[in-house]
Computed example of a mutant assay.
Amino acid sequence: MLNYKISKHSPTTQDFIALRAAIGWGETDAAMAKISLANSLFHVIIEQMNDDGSLGELIAMGRVIGDGAMYFYIQDVMVIPQYQGQGFGNILMKEIEAYLMLTAKKGATVGLLAAKGKEAFYCRFGYQKRPSDSLGNGMCKFVC
């Protein structure tokens, strides 16, 4: 069994960039990543523990962004491919959901964009697929 540590702080910019690359999300500008991480509302990271008790590789992370009142957005729920399917995504989401239960008040909206094929994972936490009878298609725009 892998020894790991869960922390509620931002990863380093370098670890964040490396994790995004490891899951196939491409290159990320370091200055942009640093600002983005600093402006997040909540972070949860999972790091591998080495045999000597020191922290090793960042293997998973998730964060929440938004205005901190009416709108919250779950972003960057990522697990390195070789650690997927071992429950780390569930750990991330349980930590995120605990944060949201304390912070998001009645009437707030929590959104996310699921990676293709990952929709069922988020449905287990009460998120709805779009489109549905009451919700239109989710949309986004990437600046190139």
Rank of each mutant, 00 (worst) to 15 (best):
residue 88 F to H: 14
residue 49 M to E: 15
residue 76 D to K: 02
residue 115 A to C: 06
residue 16 F to L: 02
residue 8 K to T: 04
residue 30 A to K: 14
residue 37 L to E: 05
residue 22 A to C: 05
residue 72 F to W: 09
residue 7 S to P: 03
residue 15 D to C: 07
residue 52 D to N: 15
residue 2 L to M: 11
residue 65 I to G: 09
residue 6 I to G: 04
residue 142 F to C: 10
residue 89 G to H: 01
residue 41 L to D: 04
residue 101 M to V: 12
residue 70 M to C: 15
residue 132 S to Y: 02
residue 89 G to S: 02
residue 103 T to W: 00
residue 4 Y to V: 09
residue 119 E to A: 11
residue 60 A to H: 06
residue 36 S to E: 07
residue 12 T to I: 05
residue 140 C to M: 12
residue 62 G to P: 05
residue 38 A to N: 13
residue 137 N to E: 11
residue 115 A to K: 01
residue 22 A to R: 04
residue 2 L to C: 06
residue 69 A to W: 14
residue 48 Q to T: 01
residue 68 G to A: 10
residue 42 F to T: 08
residue 7 S to M: 02
residue 55 L to P: 01
residue 23 I to E: 01
residue 119 E to K: 10
residue 53 G to H: 13
residue 77 V to D: 09
residue 134 S to V: 05
residue 27 E to N: 12
residue 103 T to I: 02
residue 119 E to D: 12
residue 130 R to W: 08
residue 8 K to A: 07
residue 12 T to W: 12
residue 65 I to V: 12
residue 33 A to H: 07
residue 133 D to F: 02
residue 93 M to V: 07
residue 126 G to N: 10
residue 33 A to L: 06
residue 91 I to D: 03
residue 31 A to F: 11
residue 26 G to L: 10
residue 45 I to E: 07
residue 48 Q to A: 01
residue 91 I to A: 02
residue 51 D to E: 07
residue 132 S to P: 03
residue 101 M to D: 13
residue 106 K to W: 05
residue 4 Y to C: 13
residue 49 M to K: 12
residue 46 I to D: 07
residue 99 Y to P: 01
residue 36 S to V: 01
residue 90 N to C: 11
residue 14 Q to P: 09
residue 99 Y to A: 00
residue 64 V to H: 11
residue 70 M to T: 13
residue 103 T to N: 14
residue 94 K to R: 12
residue 122 Y to F: 09
residue 93 M to N: 11
residue 32 M to N: 15
residue 113 L to S: 03
residue 42 F to N: 05
residue 65 I to L: 12
residue 27 E to Y: 05
residue 12 T to Y: 13
residue 118 K to M: 14
residue 89 G to N: 03
residue 14 Q to E: 11
residue 36 S to G: 15
residue 144 C to S: 15
residue 141 K to N: 05
residue 140 C to A: 13
residue 98 A to I: 10
residue 69 A to P: 03
residue 96 I to C: 00
residue 14 Q to T: 12
residue 72 F to H: 08
residue 111 G to L: 07
residue 114 A to W: 04
residue 110 V to D: 09
residue 59 I to G: 03
residue 3 N to G: 11
residue 69 A to I: 15
residue 133 D to E: 04
residue 82 Q to K: 03
residue 65 I to M: 12
residue 18 A to S: 14
residue 8 K to P: 00
residue 100 L to C: 03
residue 56 G to K: 06
residue 124 R to A: 08
residue 125 F to M: 09
residue 45 I to Y: 00
residue 121 F to C: 06
residue 40 S to F: 06
residue 45 I to G: 03
